[in-house]
């Protein structure tokens, strides 16, 4: 038993250094060398293209309503995935109805993605359908012709990855940055 214990302690130390220090550090070094932009969070001057933000009001294209339930932790960091409503929960029905009401007032036609929160609560994307549903509202708020916005949205669609994986999507941050450049 004592021999087992001695070996267990030593081998735990070896693995701690090998898998817990050397492996992640070499990984970090290599990532910073080869994929610096991605490894640091795909950051732009307005935020990360991979982390959703709240774009309130019809002046911007809005994403998932994740901001309505998002919480932060120590130091103000975003804490992901904290909202887990059951499929028959009253509170889910109420929050969906409330978000839809706000959207309607702004002139947006509510869509499935625009009234439901994501799993991460930082979903950066919407579908082209979700963007088209907001064109009328954004057009009148910004006095831009709807046809111009439709072209803008169409130019921002990311196709399926490698032509077949996943689905078409639009990064809300990229779309809004492009929108801000219109004027």
């Amino acid at each position: 038993m004592l021999l087992h214990l001695r070996r267990a302690v030593i081998v735990s130390g070896i693995f701690l250094i090998m898998c817990g220090i050397v492996y992640p550090l070499i990984g970090t070094g290599l990532s910073q060398l080869v994929f610096k932009h991605q490894a640091n969070g795909s950051l732009t001057q307005y935020g990360s293209t991979l982390i959703g933000q709240s774009w309130k009001g019809p002046m911007w294209f809005q994403g998932r309503p994740d901001g309505t339930v998002l919480t932060t932790g120590p130091g103000g960091v975003i804490v992901s995935g904290t909202n887990q409503p059951g499929p028959r929960s009253k509170s889910l029905e109420q929050s969906v109805a409330k978000v839809a009401q706000v959207l309607k007032v702004e002139g947006v036609i509510p869509t499935n993605d625009l009234v439901t929160t994501s799993g991460s609560l930082v979903d950066p994307d919407i579908t082209p359908h979700d963007a088209y549903a907001q064109i009328k509202a954004v057009a009148s708020a910004r006095s831009i012709p709807a046809a111009t916005l439709r072209r803008l949205v169409a130019s921002q669609i990311h196709g399926k990855e490698l032509g077949f994986m996943g689905r078409d999507y639009i990064d809300v941050l990229e779309l809004n940055v492009a929108l801000s450049h219109l004027q």
Partner: peptide
Amino acid sequence: AHVVHQANGNMVGKEVRFG
């Protein structure tokens, strides 16, 4: 809630990029 048509299925707690 009768506010949207869930044509693409249950999106509560799901990411747009995955569906």
